[in-house]
């Protein structure tokens, strides 16, 4: 068959080599982008927070600050705003304490299997509300129903109390089960949620701030 003019397009070695090159190229590009992304999503430091340097994922000590989520004209979507200092469970947490608390919270979020009912950053199961900005949810604000219901006067204490005895404070027929969360674990979880709400998620969930604003003005969503 040597005299026949064989097209490269029907040659198995040609496609094998092409497949190898394309796969290799795509993998190298992915690895390169991964290095860049890892740099951008690694946690900031306490110094960044003090200096007001914006990090996509701030240091654990962000729990010592007020966090908001507002429309940014420049970026065309909502972004987290880290504001003035505010006490968290009645105190300011040192770098070590905050890191330890966040560690406990993240561990608890995994061992209690939060992700198989809720979504975290939009990933997980779809049986319970998204937790990405749960810390900022109007339900927990001083005008919301959860503080009076749990008999607590701050957002974090109300959340912790709810997490310890969730089925005692039902809001809907579908309830959160009691998962045996201890008082310490609950504090850790609230720190984990507050930290997650400070992550720059490129505007996800959208329109969250608008609804939160309407809630403050007393507009109801009765349907």
């Amino acid at each position: 068959m040597a005299n026949e003019n064989l097209s490269v397009w029907t040659s198995i070695p040609f496609w094998r080599r092409s497949a190898a090159w394309v796969t290799g190229f795509a993998s190298i590009l992915l690895i390169w982008l991964t290095f860049d992304t890892l740099g951008q999503i690694s946690m900031g430091t306490d110094e960044d927070l003090k200096a007001g340097t914006i990090k996509r994922v701030p240091a654990p000590t962000v729990i010592n600050y007020n966090i908001d989520y507002q429309m940014s004209k420049k970026r065309g979507h909502e972004v987290p705003i880290i504001g003035a200092k505010e006490p968290f469970f009645g105190k300011e947490w040192s770098v070590e304490e905050a890191a330890e608390l966040l560690h406990l919270g993240k561990l608890t979020s995994q061992s209690k299997n939060c992700m198989n009912c809720h979504t975290l950053l939009g990933n997980g199961a779809y049986f319970a509300p998204d937790l990405t900005k749960a810390w900022l949810d109007p339900m927990w604000s001083d005008k919301g129903p959860m503080m009076p219901m749990t008999g607590k006067s701050t957002r974090e204490e109300a959340m912790a109390e709810f997490l310890i005895n969730p089925s005692q404070y039902p809001t809907h027929a579908r309830m959160m089960p009691n998962l045996g969360i201890t008082a310490d674990e609950a504090k850790g979880l609230v720190a984990f949620l507050k930290h997650m709400s400070s992550i720059d998620t490129n505007g996800f969930p959208r329109n969250f701030s608008k609804t939160a604003e309407q809630f403050k003005l007393g507009v109801s969503h009765a349907h």
Partner: peptide, 9 residues
């Protein structure tokens, strides 16, 4: 940060 793609409603 420079202006990125805006995401209209």
């Amino acid at each position: 940060m420079e202006i990125l793609i805006t995401r209209p409603e």
